Amino acid sequence: MLSLWIFVIFTLSTMVVSDDGNRLSTFTSPEEIMNACMLGISHKTSPGPESELFDKCKPWKKRSCCTESIAKDIHVNKTWYKMDWDHCGKLSDKCRARFVQDLCFYECSPNVGPWLVKVDNMKIRKERFVNVPLCRNECDAWWEDCVDDLTCIENWARHFDWSSGIPQCPSNTQCRTFREVFKNSTNFCEKVWDHSWQVVEDTDPDGCFAMWWMEGAENPNYEIAYRKAQRLISSADSIVLCSSWNCFYLLFVCICSVFSYVWYL
């Protein structure tokens, strides 16, 4: 019996906070989070400057997670990871331009570290970002430029039929306008890429992201992401401290129990 209690005490004294494999749990400072590019086949290991980035990827030139060649490929390739934006007929030029901006953000943005989560069984990436706060005015502008274009499903990340090796509309769907499929701008921005974005009001006290800005201007998303990274680190420190006190408390109880048991004998 005594040996069992000793084992329990030893186990409790060496307890650590476990994680689910999410890389965020390994970072110890906001700077580490801010210098993490997504783990994907087209992303650099860490953000840095590029001498030039093509067209709509230019805003990230000073600090980018994509290379110049990737930025160019985004604009000239008709598909990306076999994803075909024209699955219900050719997108209008203004709608396609918005999706190119979105793809530039996905491949080039160095500010999504606080929203990265681990994904499994993906050939193109080991992480994705979830619920990045997108300003409502950005979402509404994207929506207005695509509202009359055609698609067959809400969730482009999950609901295509990939049985042929390329994404196709499922047999039980038909091509309809974005307005008919998504109903409103919030549903569109949040659902089209499986909640990569979360639409927030432009006046949100925590701030919100711009999907694109003029080349040469400062990245408006950096400070928002940095404040989020600071909150994550502070929260993680609090959890560790709380867990440590819980361990000490349990250890104290076990020690008292052992002494009581020995005294009783």
Rank of each mutant, 00 (worst) to 15 (best):
T186G: 13
S164A: 12
P133L: 08
G207T: 00
C189F: 04
M214W: 03
P114G: 08
R128Q: 10
W193A: 12
E218Y: 01
R136L: 13
C135W: 01
I166D: 15
D140C: 07
N172V: 04
T186Q: 10
P205S: 06
T173W: 11
W143A: 06
P114I: 00
F209E: 03
T173C: 15
G113F: 06
E190M: 03
L150C: 03
V181Y: 09
P167T: 05
E138Q: 12
N187W: 06
N155Q: 11
K191S: 11
E144K: 12
L150R: 00
K183T: 14
P114S: 05
F129A: 07
L103P: 03
D102W: 04
L150N: 06
V100F: 15
C169H: 03
K191G: 04
N172W: 10
Y106R: 06
E144N: 07
P220A: 08
H195F: 13
E201K: 10
R136V: 05
A210C: 15
T203C: 14
F160H: 10
D206P: 02
R136I: 05
H195W: 08
V181T: 09
M214F: 13
W197E: 05
D102N: 13
S164V: 06
N187E: 15
N121E: 05
D148L: 05
I153M: 02
Q198I: 06
N111C: 10
L103C: 07
P167Q: 14
P133D: 08
L116N: 06
W213V: 02
